[in-house]
Design a protein around this nucleic acid. Structure first.
Length: 543
RNA sequence: GGCCUCAUGGUCAAGUGGUUAAGACAUCGCCCUUUCACGGCGGAAUCAGGGGUUCGAGUCCCCUUGAGGCUACCA
């Protein structure tokens, strides 16, 4: 069999050699321990948290080793590609501030020496390597089509039990030059299949950086390396690109473990050095029945990274939560280093969890609360405003117009306090949380007469307080005169002797000013509302 | 069906043959307190089941069970 002639027959246009290509992609000059990692998403129109999780692991591996992180767009599957999808991807990456050392800009400019960083622009490269495999008898053209009365063959191929016997019936595996020429002269399209050397009973061992040594059946399938449209499926593109681009460690989901033996045989056939794999677990959700299921874009808004952006979670909160999912050494580190940025935290790939974690929004919220609690009032205000500019325009207008007031709102129980409030986990919730600073409340009193009496007296004696202590003393005097207990111990001993305790009196004032039974310290609220507005609200409750 | 991965409280998990089985979130109780939030103290709660190996097993081996993945001209 003259494989060289066959190769020239099916790739007449390919004149470059593998050596020519390698000249274009010189080996990277790396120091010991330096990692080259990549994020290789296909543009689907959204960035799934599972994918971002991988990107983030890659990012850490690269940064922690002073290595390289590049972005490669895997858009070989035309059916899946959507217009705008790439834009969405870049937008999300940008919003999260995930920076790449090498990538292609949206307008098609390659940054870095190993481009193009978009697979659909690399077809000529894949063809050179496919041709080489054909030349060496390690790949063959396959003319099988579903419309061709060959359903039985396709079924065999697709069946679960392909072994050596069945392969003998493969109509394309050992076609002669003449037979191939006939097919081509007929104008038939074809795919290129890899020709495995295995028979189906071989075993193979390989290392995974997270899981350690793995063992599986060796590949025994003649899988496609070039589709009939000339583009490569994942496996082939992965082998060629990651080799040429000098990737040292591939981070991918654990769904790829099963196909790793196929990738290894491909690498060997191509004469490529094997690359380290890091198969990370998928992210799950708990359903109503308490079973775990894959987090899905259909049912779980938080599976889409835009969820966190649109709700106004700080990026750092999302990152820290991810880090927490990757391994909980982080949490201990965080506790010991409360003031360091998470970027200072170094983890090794073998410390990444082997267990598929369940996404826990409550935990994320807790992390987020702690992070937001570290912001100054001014900082919080700016972040809130910045978020509103994009996701709540009317709110942004108000914040811009009444800047001073809302900076003060953001400063409440925050600045100068050793134990700041921790009740905000995203910017979206703030408008509702502080609704009484945007509009007059509509309080509902359970004991209306009592409330009116107290509020009337408070309003009559009202003077702007200059400190919390002063304010509280004023309330004590006024409430005390009306028969409220100013000493809680006395009240507890004999509650019937009083109209209520100070807490009760405060509740009436709080309701009048905020419409809520719970709020930050009233003194702060009065200070922000100002004398006029405070009196107005009190008065409207006395009628 | 075949092949593969995984298994510690409700959740995230530490743990690499000898521990009273860390810690965090959630939950419950108490304290602080003008409410909330914060903070402090405390409680309840875990090694999926069964066999081995060993003086000794959460940890090593086998089986079972459960969960998940792959088995495409998707990635």
């Amino acid at each position: 069999m003259n494989y060289k002639d066959i190769a020239n027959l099916i790739f007449p246009d390919v004149t470059l050699t593998v050596e020519d290509i390698f000249k274009r992609y010189p080996k990277r000059n790396l120091k010991e321990g330096q990692c080259v990692t990549r994020f290789a998403p296909s543009p689907t129109g959204l960035v799934h948290i599972g994918n971002f999780f991988q990107a983030f692991i890659s990012y850490n591996l690269a940064k922690n080793s002073d290595g390289v992180l590049f972005l490669r767009i895997e858009d070989t599957d035309r059916k899946r590609e959507k217009t705008e999808a790439k834009k969405v991807l870049y937008d999300v990456l940008n919003k999260f501030g995930l920076e790449f050392d090498e990538y292609q800009t949206l307008d098609g400019k390659d940054i870095g020496d190993y481009g193009p960083y978009v697979q659909s622009q690399r077809n000529d490269i894949y063809r050179v390597f496919a041709k080489k495999l054909v030349e060496e008898g390690r790949a063959f053209p396959c003319f099988c089509k579903k419309t061709d009365g060959k359903e039985d063959v396709l079924k065999l191929r697709e069946s679960k039990f392909i072994d050596n016997d069945e392969r003998e019936y493969d109509p394309c595996r050992d076609l002669s030059y003449e037979e191939i020429k006939k097919h081509i002269d007929n104008g038939e399209s074809f795919a290129i299949r890899f020709k495995t050397k295995n028979k189906g009973d071989e075993r193979i061992k390989f290392k995974d950086v997270i899981k350690g040594e793995l063992e599986a059946k060796a590949n025994a399938k003649d899988f496609i390396i070039l589709k009939s449209d000339g583009t490569p499926p994942y496996a082939f593109a992965h082998a060629v690109d990651d080799t040429l681009m000098g990737t040292t460690i591939v981070v991918r989901g654990e769904e790829y473990i099963a196909s790793t033996p196929a990738h290894i045989e491909l690498f060997e056939a191509l004469g490529f050095k094997l690359i380290d794999y890091c198969h990370n677990p998928l992210i799950y959700k708990l359903n109503e029945q308490g079973n775990r299921r894959k987090i899905s874009k259909r049912y779980d808004p938080e599976s889409n990274m835009m969820f966190f952006v649109e709700n106004g979670y700080p990026n750092d909160a999302v990152y820290e939560y991810l880090l927490n999912m990757i391994n909980s050494h982080f949490e201990i580190w965080r506790k010991n280093n409360p003031n360091l940025n998470w970027r200072e935290f170094k983890f090794k790939p073998n410390e990444i969890t082997t267990v598929a974690p369940i996404f826990d929004l409550v935990k994320l919220n807790d992390i987020s609360k702690n992070i937001i609690a570290t912001y100054s009032g001014e900082e919080l205000f700016e972040k809130w405003r910045h978020w509103a500019e994009e996701y709540d325009k009317p709110l942004a207008q108000i914040l811009n117009k009444e800047r001073d007031k809302f900076v003060k709102v953001c400063q409440m129980d925050r600045e100068g306090k050793p134990k700041p409030r921790k009740d905000i986990y995203d910017y979206k919730m703030m408008k509702e949380l502080f609704h009484y600073f945007f509009e007059s409340p509509k309080p509902i009193f359970e004991e209306e007469d009592k409330a009116k009496e107290l509020l009337r007296s408070y309003l009559e004696n009202f003077k702007m307080p200059s400190s919390n202590e002063e304010w509280f003393n004023d309330v004590k005097v006024i409430a005390g005169n009306l028969g409220y207990a100013t000493d809680n111990k006395l009240y507890k001993e004999n509650p019937d002797a009083f109209k209520g305790n100070i807490a009760k009196a405060c509740e009436f004032i709080r309701l009048a000013l905020t419409g809520e039974k719970d709020s930050p310290t009233l003194f702060n609220i009065i200070e922000i509302l100002g004398e006029e507005e405070t009196k107005k609200r009190l008065e409207s409750c006395t009628k």
